[in-house]
């Protein structure tokens, strides 16, 4: 008698499957990254390229752009699985759906959140952010973007069955992003002024733990609702 895979194996399997899918659709996944760079380029054009001004608002700009880029990429977490019936198969899996959701969201973060780390230093340089703030910028992106993916996944799961889900999605998700925005931007700002940033970083870590432990359950419940 054969038996089902261990939970860890199933997790890894689904993660690898999603990464493979993303690799085969890589043009689509490059879009949010381009969008991120593009939005940031707009600010100097709109506000004028005064170095002091840009350096002052750089943390805010980068994080607002990161939120918008995350919003744009969210739909792809469950969209194709919902359309082709794979989502039903995942919901009918012998494994706990919340863990499978965690695998899917992790894969999504690896292909949409992590790449921001690569372009962020470049953009920080272009906006004239002081060097000592750049390490903090990377740290906030590293801790903050998975929160965006985890929380966003709940919103997508609630709206994936709707025809006009996109507009509602932003209304559902952006207010929930506010705490991440506040603490991440403030951490970078403090670092730029040479102050201590550990309080903000610890808060972000706490948010990360909270979202990783709670959001998969809410997402799984929302997916069941959307699939019915």
């Amino acid at each position: 008698m054969s038996s089902r895979l261990s939970l860890l194996q199933a997790f890894v399997f689904l993660l690898r499957r999603d990464l493979l899918l993303a690799f085969r659709n890589r043009a689509e996944y490059a879009m949010p990254l381009l969008f991120f760079v593009l939005v940031i380029t707009l600010f100097p054009l709109a506000l004028g390229a005064l170095p002091e001004l840009l350096a002052r608002i750089a943390p805010g700009i980068i994080w607002v752009a990161a939120l918008l880029a995350a919003m744009l990429s969210l739909d792809s977490i469950f969209r194709s699985d919902f359309d082709d019936g794979s989502l039903e198969q995942i919901l009918l899996s012998a494994h706990p759906v919340a863990i499978l959701v965690l695998a899917k969201v992790s894969a999504h973060w690896l292909v949409t959140g992590l790449p921001l780390l690569i372009v962020a230093p470049l953009l920080a340089e272009m906006l004239g952010m002081p060097g000592q703030a750049q390490a903090t910028l990377l740290l906030t992106i590293l801790i903050g973007t998975p929160i965006l993916s985890m929380v966003g996944a709940i919103g997508v799961a609630l709206t994936v069955g709707l025809r006009k889900g996109g507009i509602i999605l932003s209304l559902l998700v952006l207010p929930l992003y506010v705490p991440v925005l506040i603490f991440a931007a403030s951490a970078i700002e403090n670092a730029a002024m040479g102050f201590e940033v550990s309080a903000q970083i610890y808060m972000l870590l706490a948010f990360l733990l909270l979202s990783v432990s709670l959001s998969p359950w809410a997402t799984a419940a929302a997916l069941r609702m959307s699939a019915s």
Partner: peptide
């Protein structure tokens, strides 16, 4: 205990 084949095939076109 269940295998379901629904209205949608549930197969990934890219795989």
């Amino acid at each position: 205990q269940v295998t379901y084949v629904g209205h949608h095939d549930g197969v990934k076109h890219e795989l």
